[in-house]
Design a protein around this nucleic acid. Structure first.
Lengths: 352, 352
DNA sequence: CTGAAAGCGCTTACAG
DNA sequence: CTGAAAGCGCTTACAG
């Protein structure tokens, strides 16, 4: 039951180099104030012994805090989707703050790219040790990750991914598959000669999520030889009035629309429109476990909600950065979340 | 940059209870030799302060080793598939043995259920703190996991999963999807009026893997309205002679067989048969990055190999148990590995 | 039944 | 440029 003592620590290095462990520590951390000669001697011994620091001891002794930047959208009055990841983030924080981990939140406004830029700059100057972020603006996020990479700042994405990013960890849904599932759900209420409407409500309509989700959605129809025509509209102004206006128009143009798929959590505005206009015969599928969405699910306006455990994404995101930073342990490149299907029948038991 | 000292440790508990930290430690670990009175007093304070132990410090101070049982098939002369997970396991071991983690290997024989039983018993009596295993024998594994659960032994599965097991972690492929991918690859060389043969070479033909893989495989054909007839054979004796005999018979019966899918790494014996009988026009898809398989891939007998990074499965399996045991950190219930596609063209660059 | 002291492998002031 | 000493929050003999 005894620990084998085949491992050499700073003590042994110090003994061999005939210096104190403080000097060994200085060399280990590239601190100044060590003569080139002793530095070389110590480095040689470090190599010879293949010294591996004990990170547990290091963390315990260190007074330094590990700072993680949390870089996600601010909860807006329109949708409180981002509440859930934040809850998970806070839960992780409370579990690991005793190990000296501190979170700094940097919120940006989904309707304002400039706010993203500003916060990104703040993060780069803040001296944090890692970043948990939602790459809502693809181009901007890509550039930011590049900047982080230059100063060796590990980055973890949640909620959505960005194509061809190396050196990051992604925790979120397989977006394409998620859209595929959406289409599958859609077909439960779809007749073969009717049209399907894909609605994309977002300031950032070219967002990678939405493109991936829509491709998955369309792909299902192709794979299963569903001949339904798929129409799509982008709604850049996310307020209810704008949504109503766009929907009125498209439904007028295409009388045969029998089902609507909304690519994000704003499905409730479509639901509201359908309710107000008594268009309750149209099937509706969308995203996320928001209170408003659940209400429409209960009143049969929304047929299905898809959800990717946003709270757990936040929790895992922080934990994964913590493990990476503190324990130097394996970095998982991609962790796909489940694609959960929520209906009126099972919503009461859903775990975010 | 300073650590906030809002956390109470054993010292504070001892101060409040007016005892020494040794006594606090005794209570914390339910050790004997503490009067009921002081025990109660200390426990009350622990509750009041909502004391959370610092696991980093605990590990550092402890002389106790964490023992993990590695319960996987022995590498057989027939196939060295299990070499790869073992390599990953050893790599993980060398990374974490400095933190007092020790691995005990318990190999069983894939052709001998009794050997599984024997080793399972040994593990349960060995006092290990966690188990990494391959549930090759479904029923036996299920029972073993039940026994582990009783003594609160965490278990992680690699390579294949077992249905309806709670309280375990699974690290391996999405078997159904893997079969689906296999079918997709198959179709590249398949004409619509020909037959497909599914070959299952294993002592344990009712193994959950194979059933799932085959279901995924068949599912692809259904989803894509491929009308090809799918024939299947089980080969329980895994030697080359037996394989040749079975294949001769089935190919004689069904002249139109144009493609063969082997549900595990033993695809090389089918390849050997095809080569020896000059049946090289038959497409062949199977599993795993074994030297023999790669040779047949190079000589165009095997068209595709599917691989699920077995080495990484072993590595991750150990690391996940370590994190669970040492750090009490999040237990991930399922981690799906990638379904890698290996061809003659890319095999040289494959990372197991 | 209880406590004082040493120690795990590091880091951090502080002194020189 | 270098070292002695205290300390991180625990665990472990050992002594009484």
């Amino acid at each position: 039951m005894e620990k084998e003592n085949t491992y050499f620590g700073v003590k042994e290095i110090a003994r061999r180099a005939k210096v104190s462990i403080a000097t060994v520590d200085r060399v280990l951390h590239n601190r100044t104030g060590v003569s080139e000669k002793t530095k070389k001697k110590i480095n040689d011994i470090i190599k010879e012994l293949d010294y591996q620091p004990n990170i547990l001891a290091s963390r315990l002794a260190s007074k330094k805090t590990i700072n993680i930047a949390v870089f996600i959208p601010r909860v807006s009055p329109e949708t409180d989707f981002w509440d859930a990841p934040l809850r998970g983030i806070r839960r992780a924080e409370s579990e690991i703050k005793k190990y000296g981990v501190k979170l700094n939140t940097f919120f940006f406004d989904l309707n304002d790219k400039e706010s993203f830029h500003k916060q990104a700059k703040l993060i780069l100057d803040s001296g944090v040790n890692g970043v948990l972020m939602a790459p809502s603006f693809v181009e901007e996020a890509t550039q930011f990750v590049g900047d982080c990479h230059k100063i060796k700042l590990p980055v973890t994405f949640i909620d959505s991914n960005v194509p061809e990013q190396t050196n990051i960890t992604y925790i979120g849904p397989h977006l394409f598959r998620s859209g595929y599932v959406g289409a599958k759900l859609m077909t439960y209420r779809l007749k073969s000669d009717r049209k399907v409407l894909v609605v994309n409500i977002s300031t950032e309509t070219d967002n990678y999520n939405y493109i991936q989700i829509e491709e998955g959605f369309r792909s299902y129809f192709r794979d299963h030889d569903q001949a339904n025509e798929i129409i799509r509209i982008d709604i850049k102004d996310t307020d209810q009035l704008s949504v109503a206006k766009h929907l009125t128009k498209v439904i007028h143009q295409h009388q045969e629309i029998e089902a609507i798929f909304v690519t994000n959590s704003r499905v409730f505005s479509v639901a509201r429109f359908l309710q107000e206009n008594n268009l309750t015969n149209i099937a509706l599928v969308g995203y996320d476990f928001l209170k408003e969405n659940i209400d429409f699910l209960k009143s049969n306006i929304i047929d299905f909600l898809i959800c990717h455990k946003p709270e757990e994404q936040g929790y895992r995101g922080i934990m994964s950065l913590y493990q990476n930073l503190v324990l130097g342990s394996l970095v998982e490149k991609v962790h796909f979340m489940p694609i959960d299907i929520i209906t009126k029948e099972n919503e009461a038991f859903y775990q975010n």
